[in-house]
């Protein structure tokens, strides 16, 4: 893993590259925050700079995208997060890139064209959390039925399930066959 100082250096480099590419320094150069927790480096970036950040990291050696997964940070805003886990196979380094978007505007640019592994994984995040990936070739529900309403893994979606039949509530609950 890049250690804490290495992480800060990476963040600095990203900010510089972001400004150099003319995307302006209005949003802190794309990198909002760095976090170093339990020997693991993480960068929090703005949604708009996701693709550029990942490409820059690919240039630095993180050529393997291990995972793309979503998180619901309810009740903290912005609620929906997307995490990209990158891996550098030659030096066995991992780094996480995090993005957070609010539920009201859950758009994140898709990285499927540059990182083909993100295809099904972004579809799963769309299915489970409702994050819309702009530019994804085929954004449909992947795990739930196609006509399902709602995004199940959001924290305010109920877990659901059947009531468990115990002796004390069996007479009051309708049996399946009735």
């Amino acid at each position: 893993m890049p250690d804490a100082t290495g992480l800060e250096l990476i963040a600095q480099e990203l900010r510089r590259a972001h400004e150099a590419a003319g995307r302006g320094s209005g949003d802190a150069g794309g990198v909002l925050d760095t976090a170093y927790f339990r020997d693991k480096a993480a960068l929090l970036v703005t949604p708009a700079s996701v693709q550029a950040t990942l490409e820059h990291l690919r240039g630095m050696g993180y050529r393997f995208m291990a995972s793309v997964h979503g998180v619901d940070y309810f009740p903290e805003e912005p609620r929906l997060g997307v995490h990209y886990e990158l891996l550098d196979m030659s030096t066995v380094d991992r780094i996480t890139v995090k993005v957070r978007v609010p539920v009201a505007d859950p758009h994140v640019p898709s990285v499927t064209n540059e990182w083909p592994t993100a295809d099904h994984q972004e579809r799963e995040i769309y299915d489970m959390f409702g994050v819309i990936f702009d530019g994804h070739p085929d954004l449909r529900r992947i795990l739930m039925p196609e006509d399902y309403e709602g995004h199940p893994q959001r924290r305010d979606f109920p877990v659901g399930g059947e009531p468990v039949f115990f002796t004390h509530n069996e007479p009051r609950l309708p049996r399946y066959t009735q």
């Binding site: 739930m144 199940p152 979606f157 109920p158 877990v159 659901g160 399930g161 059947e162 468990v164 039949f165 399946y176 066959t177």
Partner: peptide, 16 residues
């Protein structure tokens, strides 16, 4: 038979 270990939105007991 029942929902088993997973009592949640995604599965159905066969009796239904």
């Amino acid at each position: 038979s029942s929902m088993g270990v997973f009592n949640n939105y995604a599965i159905v007991p066969a009796d239904k």
